[in-house]
């Protein structure tokens, strides 16, 4: 069967010896919207960095049916849009336009195509008037939206977001959830925000200690008090 993300027996150790991933396996089908939850240090961010080859462990990772190995990096990175937790890491260019254009430029598109992509992506996150702005003058919520635009402009099949609602005020959070609901891509979202999970993501994967400890329908997992307690989570 065609899977958008396939992770098989993934093991990863940081150079200092921390075993951050300890045999992780799961599959995600096209169009699925999946939550990745678990306590701090569970290995969520580490796992996400494997999905486009920034980190490489033992085991196999396939994305859009392409094995994530060095020779495929360019294709893989076009297929998965990774949005990191801190927008100040994601937005490294002087202007919003430069940041959103970065991915398409590296995909080798010509100038007109890049401009069209940027306009489209900014429109999708409702920030079309901000292209010429300088990112450090924006609010956290605005920066988050631009961060998402920086990967939407690459037209990925899959969006992977690391703690997208962390640090947002209630309105910023609400706007972001509404935005994520509008996007058609397959999604994997690492988060502590179980309210959002409940509203937005039908499937949940629970990680702890570098392993997948539960994987199933969100409604069932969020009602399993014993499971939530055992892994430091709180029922929404």
């Amino acid at each position: 069967m065609h899977h958008t993300i396939q992770v098989q027996e993934l093991v990863f150790k940081y150079p200092d010896g921390t075993r951050a991933l300890d045999g992780v396996s799961f599959h995600i089908a096209p169009g699925e919207k999946v939550a990745l939850v678990g306590p701090n240090g569970a290995g969520k961010s580490t796992l996400i960095l494997h999905l486009n080859g920034i980190l490489q462990g033992e085991g196999t990772v396939c994305v859009a049916d392409i094995p994530v190995v060095e020779k495929n990096f360019a294709r893989v990175r076009a297929a998965v849009g990774l949005v990191f937790q801190d927008p100040d890491d994601q937005l490294f260019s002087p202007t919003v336009f430069d940041d959103v254009a970065f991915g398409p430029i590296y995909q080798g598109l010509d100038e007109q195509q890049v401009r069209a992509r940027v306009e489209h992506a900014l429109h999708a996150v409702h920030m079309q008037d901000y292209a010429r702005r300088v990112s450090h003058h924006l609010s956290v919520g605005q920066k988050k939206r631009i961060s998402i635009a920086t990967v939407l402009s690459m037209q990925p099949e899959i969006l992977v977001l690391d703690e997208p609602t962390a640090g947002l005020d209630p309105r910023g959070r609400r706007d972001l959830i509404r935005l994520l609901r509008e996007l058609p891509q397959t999604m994997l979202i690492a988060t502590h925000d179980l309210h959002m999970v409940q509203e937005l993501l039908p499937r949940t994967i629970v990680m702890d200690g570098g392993r997948v400890v539960a994987d199933g329908r969100t409604s069932e997992i969020l009602n399993d008090d014993a499971l939530l307690n055992a892994h430091g989570l709180e029922k929404p």
């Binding site: 990175r77 990774l82 890491d89 490294f92 991915g103 430029i105 590296y106 920086t150 990967v151 690459m154």
Partner: peptide
């Protein structure tokens, strides 16, 4: 530490060490 994270964010969008820009 931030340098590492920025590198990851750049690489995730296809950065390969060559600086590209519009003419």
């Amino acid at each position: 530490e931030r340098g590492d994270r920025i590198y990851a964010a750049m690489a995730a969008r296809g950065y390969d060490g060559e600086v590209r820009a519009f003419p």
